[in-house]
């Protein structure tokens, strides 16, 4: 199981980070711009969707999840699943009151 090579990293580049940064700035602009428009119930959903896309970019590129071994992604999945369970079951109480 031991993996002692600590230089197994992908070859680093600056370019991808700058592209992701630009994408993040654009998404920030979009989320501010659409915040003024009233989508009714979808306003929050839109904001959260954009925030999720931004987080996904940060997680996969800035935090290297994409180049790490699979177990890291599984870990993140487990943590998010736990939070999701908590949210869903709590709303099972509050939204059917």
């Amino acid at each position: 199981m031991e993996n002692h090579s600590h230089s197994e990293k992908h070859t680093p580049h600056y370019g991808i980070y700058i592209i992701v940064w630009l994408a993040l700035l654009i998404l920030t602009g979009v989320t501010v711009a659409v915040a003024g428009i009233d989508f009714g119930g979808l306003t929050v959903a839109t904001a959260l969707l954009i925030a999720s896309i931004k987080s996904y970019l940060v997680l996969t590129i800035f935090m290297h999840l994409k180049s790490e071994s699979k177990v890291f992604s599984i870990f993140v999945g487990v943590a998010l699943l736990f939070l999701l369970i908590s949210f869903v079951l709590l709303f099972a109480d509050y939204s059917f009151m």
Binding site: L89, A92, D93, Y94, S95, F96, M97
Partner: peptide, 10 residues
């Protein structure tokens, strides 16, 4: 005093 749905699930 939770909702019926929550009582059922839990």
């Amino acid at each position: 005093g939770m909702s019926g749905a929550a009582m059922f699930i839990f």
